[in-house]
Amino acid sequence: MAEMNMLHAINSALRIAMEKDSTMTVFGEDVGHFGGVFRATSGLQDTFGRARCFNTPLTEQGIAGFANGLASNGMTVVAEIQFADYIFPAFDQIVNESAKFRYRSGNEFNVGGLTFRTPYGGGIAGGHYHSQSPEAYFTGTPGLKVVVPRNAYQAKGLLLASIRDPNPVVFFEPKRLYRASVGEVPEGDYEIELGKAEVLQQGKDITLLGWGAQMEILEKAAEMAAAEGISCEVIDLRTLSPWDVNTVAESVKKTGRLLINHEAPLTGGFAGEIAATIQEECFLYLESPIARVCGLDTPYPLIHEKEYMPDALKTFEAIKACVAF
């Protein structure tokens, strides 16, 4: 075990995967000798050479198209989109090509060895072009897996599992936690199963559900609720597509209440899909309406970032309202 922040954990995962798979390449804007804008790929080009870790032109559509081509020829590919806000020029390549490669060929060919890494979310005063949380756009696309880690340990295990998964994966990294999330991480190889949520805290009064950077917010809100005598069960979804319906439904049947927290805007956010599914699964068990504490339906505001964020206080007030319903 070693003390690592999330960037070190991601770098360690990439290094281990490249050591064990000679077909693996890593590329994106400035990821070569510079190590990427956040330095997540530092040292990889020095170790593995310019043929396996290299810079691309500033064209996200080209990065995704090139990634599809390499992966369709059997290579393992990790392509970095420098900010999730700039994944949209690559949207057509990802949702119309990556996601459908296997289906359209009847499994004669695929791009299963493809992973897109991209930093998402606010909290760094990045303004409206460097703070968005676009994960929900990809959850509605059959053929893609969508993964979001909450800390350094999770980031390494989930990234290694994503790289080795036989399906294309979009891996969203909470950039607010890149250097803030520090913990004990195994130096060796390990994987965390995709599609499986984790219950972080047992409780009996309400289920709190989130992913990524918002898990820290949920844990703080749960502490505040505990001081008021409210027992919260806290669950990290980790994989949004496919998401772990059974673990969430079992929890809600026990607590009778569900609060979903995410940083993306409320309308069209993934919380809506979760709420619809859980009310179908748990309708007769619900003691209050399913609550959503999310970002605002506005472009991400630089000057009002604090007001925009679904923080612990907003979550705590929503918990109390659910329990008092």
Rank of each mutant, 00 (worst) to 15 (best):
M1I: 11
M4D: 06
N5D: 15
M6G: 09
L7M: 08
L7R: 15
A9E: 00
I10Y: 09
N11M: 13
L14I: 11
R15I: 10
A17I: 06
M18I: 05
E19L: 02
E19N: 03
T23Y: 08
T25R: 12
F27E: 05
V31H: 05
G32W: 05
F34I: 13
V37K: 00
V37S: 03
V37F: 03
G43R: 15
G43K: 14
L44E: 00
A51K: 14
N55M: 05
N55F: 04
L58E: 00
L58V: 07
L58N: 01
E60P: 01
Q61K: 04
G62A: 14
I63G: 13
G65N: 08
F66H: 03
N68V: 09
G69V: 06
S72V: 06
V78D: 02
A79P: 00
F83N: 06
F83G: 06
F83S: 07
F88W: 02
P89I: 04
F91N: 03
D92M: 11
I94H: 00
E97Q: 15
S105A: 05
E108H: 05
F109I: 11
N110A: 13
T115G: 03
T115N: 05
Y120G: 00
Y120F: 12
Y120D: 00
G122K: 03
I124G: 09
H128G: 09
H128S: 13
P134Q: 01
E135A: 08
K145E: 00
V147P: 04
R150V: 13
N151D: 15
Y153K: 14
Q154D: 15
L160W: 01
A161F: 01
F171A: 06
E173S: 07
E187K: 11
D189G: 07
G195Y: 10
L200V: 07
Q202K: 14
D205G: 08
I206A: 05
I206W: 01
G210T: 15
M215A: 11
A221I: 09
M224H: 11
A226P: 04
V234S: 07
L237G: 15
R238E: 00
T239L: 05
S241L: 08
D244T: 03
E250G: 14
E250S: 15
S251R: 01
K253N: 09
K254D: 14
G256I: 02
R257H: 13
L258S: 10
L259D: 07
L259I: 07
I260M: 15
I260V: 15
H262Q: 15
H262K: 08
E263T: 03
A264N: 06
L266S: 12
T267H: 08
T267D: 13
F270G: 06
A275N: 13
E281S: 06
C282L: 10
F283T: 07
L284E: 11
L286A: 04
I290K: 10
A291I: 04
R292W: 09
T298M: 13
P301E: 11
P301G: 10
K306C: 09
K306A: 15
Y308V: 10
Y308H: 14
D311E: 12
L313D: 05
L313H: 06
K314T: 07
K314A: 12
K314F: 08
T315A: 09
E317G: 04
A321S: 06
V323Q: 01
A324D: 02
A324R: 03
A324C: 02
